[in-house]
């Protein structure tokens, strides 16, 4: 990637971040804001991984290693969320 490419990626990340901040101030339902802001965060993380961390250009083995924790993370999150009814009692 050229220097210019990196600057374009940075501009995109900055724009998405400011969009997330703006979204959090809109008079819409909290659920919509949560979904929108977290979706924007996920997109930004993918962009950083693909371009700044070079996963798009490196061996797919590295992408597999990077993605491997995600199913485990979901399992961990679900298991911890099972505590919510306990907390609400």
């Amino acid at each position: 990637m050229t220097y210019k490419n990196y600057i374009v990626v940075w501009a995109g990340l900055t724009g998405l971040m400011l969009l997330g901040v703006a979204l959090s101030y809109l008079p819409i339902s909290h659920g919509t804001v949560v979904a929108g802001v977290l979706a924007l965060s996920a997109v930004k993380a993918v962009i950083v991984g693909m371009y700044f961390m070079h996963l798009k250009f490196d061996s797919k083995v590295l992408t597999a290693i990077a993605v491997a924790p995600l199913p485990l993370a979901i399992v961990l999150m679900v298991l911890i969320l099972l505590d919510k009814p306990f907390l609400l009692r």
Binding site: A66, A68, L76, I80, F86
Partner: peptide, 24 residues
């Protein structure tokens, strides 16, 4: 990358705890 994968799990544990406490 293997180290970073382990770091993901570390932070997911903390973030999950935060989310469940917030939700509860």
């Amino acid at each position: 990358w293997v180290f970073l994968a382990s770091e993901v799990m570390f932070f997911v544990g903390l973030l999950s705890t935060y989310i469940v406490l917030k939700a509860g």
